[in-house]
Nucleic acid binder design. Sequence first.
DNA 1: TTGAAAGCGCTAACAC
DNA 2: GTGTTAGCGCTTTCAA
Lengths: 332, 332
Amino acid sequence: MTVTIYDVAREANVSMATVSRVVNGNQNVKPATRKKVLEVIERLEYRPNAVARGLASKKTTSIGVIIPDISNNLYAELTRGIEDIATMYRYNIILSNSDQNETKELELLNTMLGKQVDGIVMMSDHVTEKVANAIRQSPVPIVLAGSIIQDDSIPTVNIDYFQAAFDAIQLFINKGHKEIAFVSGPLDYTINGEFKLGAYKKALQQANLEVNQQFIDATDGTYDEAILSWESFNKKGLVPTAIFAGSDEIALGVIHAIQDSGKRVPEDVEVISFENSKLARMVRPRLTSIALPLYDIGAVSMRLLTKLLNKEEVAEKNVILPYRIEIRNSTK
Amino acid sequence: MTVTIYDVAREANVSMATVSRVVNGNQNVKPATRKKVLEVIERLEYRPNAVARGLASKKTTSIGVIIPDISNNLYAELTRGIEDIATMYRYNIILSNSDQNETKELELLNTMLGKQVDGIVMMSDHVTEKVANAIRQSPVPIVLAGSIIQDDSIPTVNIDYFQAAFDAIQLFINKGHKEIAFVSGPLDYTINGEFKLGAYKKALQQANLEVNQQFIDATDGTYDEAILSWESFNKKGLVPTAIFAGSDEIALGVIHAIQDSGKRVPEDVEVISFENSKLARMVRPRLTSIALPLYDIGAVSMRLLTKLLNKEEVAEKNVILPYRIEIRNSTK
DNA sequence: TTGAAAGCGCTAACAC
DNA sequence: GTGTTAGCGCTTTCAA
């Protein structure tokens, strides 16, 4: 019922090897033969079976993508970068959500390897030791996109999160702020607990400003908790004049809470977020934000993976992309 | 080098058929044998090759997902619904972006069929005749999620877009509005040109209100064009008192333009959007919005597909999901 | 309850 | 340039 390479071969009076050559663009085919085969392919509407091809060639032209949650704009943007480059190199993507759950990550890694993907791009906010090990054991290359891991031998693509956060705090300090708060996402994520928080502390200390634990609030990263964050500062009798927000969503929550408390942004309180999603310019005040090049991180990760797949030399397996600060209206 | 079913069979002193039975949970295996095989599988870290299995069984447990753009929150939400249910039924997802481009859609359909997916869930804002035909020709079931097509024989999952839009306009009318504008996305998308616009006109006519073409503005759906939309009304000397926005992003643009022109929302102009993304409650004023159950549309589409794959009887191939209007602060 | 053997549809030597 | 043939790793009859 379905047309196979054998049917085409018979109809075209050639061997299946020749059909295979035509289909795969092998040059060792006489033009006349090629033409004849192509005609039969068209007439029979032959569509090569990628599964059979995969089994025979040990290449599936599929790559696995494991991310925490596709419905989160941040990961979606990154995924789009991955997919565009994958398409460019003729790979397809098998996408799965891990919900940032170690067990799921491990299962997904296993499932994808079972599906014989040629490689994997993974994104995880907290790479556990077990996951790191699974990555090391993988028979196919795995690139970590926008994820932090100690092991240099595992390919990664990131920006310098520490420096980026440092720049933001420094910007506040330069403006004369002394009451600078940090409203963070989960602190057990390395990017938050180590880089953003670390940079926050270092910048403050370097400016001889006291690091007040009360000014550091770890939320779950949602809008609703960010709102509570500002209120809790006030309850403690604290009134920050500048806030470094771990994400755009956090920034929004904080800003609305500030406004609800009768203060203005940026006049009374200045806010800088860490993300710069599309949202940042579609809200009022528009968010001053550290611009995470999410699409690029995804794209470069996939590009790096293609190099690994082609066994090309890669000078640096740990790519650091540039970032910038987008100045808008949540700062003066 | 890689462990195959044959290695396991040899080590366990059974035939590969028996190993296959154990792996596939076939009950016709003596418990003792099963145990022995399981041990060897564990010891050898045997991982079944899904490609070989796919070739032999003609089932890949992969389903294709074709959407316009994963970086757009609307499609991402839908995709998450698809993926969750797919995972529940042990399917993996091959995801591709079509950018709402007919040629790409056709190519993707073809690629996925070549990869022998067991089924496809597709989302398209404008299903062309060629694409409809390709869907009909498909050897595997295809479900259209949140997409409009004339042909009842193609399975779909939607809400009643016409009625939903009608409700929104009716709400404005009931409040006594007479100058009601419709800022739309591309009108060549059936959902816009036929349903939202159609409902807009019908509701107005039914209330004996004049349908003024000047009050109908077709944008490309972006925030920036939505901003221009309000300005263009004003330039024409028109000042709508109520605006029906085709999406949350359009609503945001319109609202900001209104505010920039010195008017207030909802006091001077009321706005209702059509989408209710997470955004809707994270902006000020919070958006009154027709709540599209995007996640559910995705989930139900995938569920419908599993039924089709299992050759279950499906009473209704064209599923209509309920919707609601979320009243917030962009209306009085 | 288990095994033998014939494919699934294709690629990739190797030979001619 | 083209054909022959041996797998790729698994499922699935069919026998035993």
